[in-house]
Design a protein around this nucleic acid. Structure first.
Lengths: 146, 146
DNA sequence: GTGATATTGATAATCATTCTCATTTTGGAG
DNA sequence: CTCCAAAATGAGAATGATTATCAATATCAC
């Protein structure tokens, strides 16, 4: 019984001349069974129950594929090394990053900051901090087309 | 000429019975010289120019210390493995995380979402997506005191 | 079915980070 | 200033997550 996630994945693959394989179907099925925040490792474990011969590398590859196909999304956590920025006598700000050229613009938006306070209160949390990154294409990269 | 960052670090160290060392001073000086988003690696390179004998492990240890002392802050990027969540036919949401017990609450706030659109426009960006994580103490942990 | 091509699984390699531990440095007490 | 216990260091090994390599295999348009 092909559900709509499988349909969407197959459409994505066909469109790009990629193949619908046993391993990919197994990873997607495993992913759909899991709730909340899924690591590649827990996905590997779940996928092995469906296809015991599956390799770890394939799971890593496939979960990235799912993200590209719009079926999964990364819950925070960027590529590469952790970075630090000055915090003392540097006012707080958030980041706007260009996915094409990597440019990072720092911004501060009062509406967003105060809306966050509301969210904390709403859930009974005591605020400590927050991290926000908006991603998009900067004016230059957008002009050049994607 | 001791600047206020050094004063703040020394105060933090004294308060906790920790020592003011050559290596720590070198890392702080290097950190103050660098702009923007600093990786442990670039900091290591900069610190070596000040104290050629410094070790990489010390730089990693010290930048964490700077963050604890309130002189640096992590620019996104959590500990541990990357996680994924369902994206297809699952509405977008952001995260509220308890620093004490790790609980993650998913929320959606219309004010924040629309304020983001404004920021994108303001800087001429074409929006792709965003990641936001609010951190604090959940009601239970806050009640138990910190 | 057949063949060109994409994909796989195993493994090695890489990268960032943390741990281990013998040696050195620090700072308070005398 | 000297001594000493405790803290910190640097080198290198260890770890954990992820990615690259590559020969063997599976997929699919024909």
């Amino acid at each position: 019984m092909p559900n709509s996630e499988h349909v969407k994945l197959e459409a994505y693959l066909k469109e790009r001349g990629q193949k619908v394989t046993k391993a990919r179907k197994a990873v997607l099925r495993a992913f759909m069974e899991l709730e909340g925040h899924v690591t590649a490792d827990s996905l590997f474990a779940a996928a092995k129950k469906i296809d015991p011969g599956i390799g770890q590398a394939t799971v890593f590859r496939t979960v990235k594929l799912l993200a590209e196909a719009g079926l999964a999304r990364e819950a925070c956590q960027d590529e590469g090394a952790r970075t630090y920025e000055h915090a003392f006598r540097h006012s707080h700000h958030d980041h706007l990053r260009c996915e094409r050229c990597g440019t990072i613009v720092e911004f501060y938006d009062k509406t967003i900051e105060s809306a966050q306070e509301v969210v904390f209160k709403q859930y009974g949390f005591v605020a400590i901090g927050h991290k926000m990154e908006l991603t998009g294409l900067c004016a230059d990269c957008a002009r050049r087309g994607i």
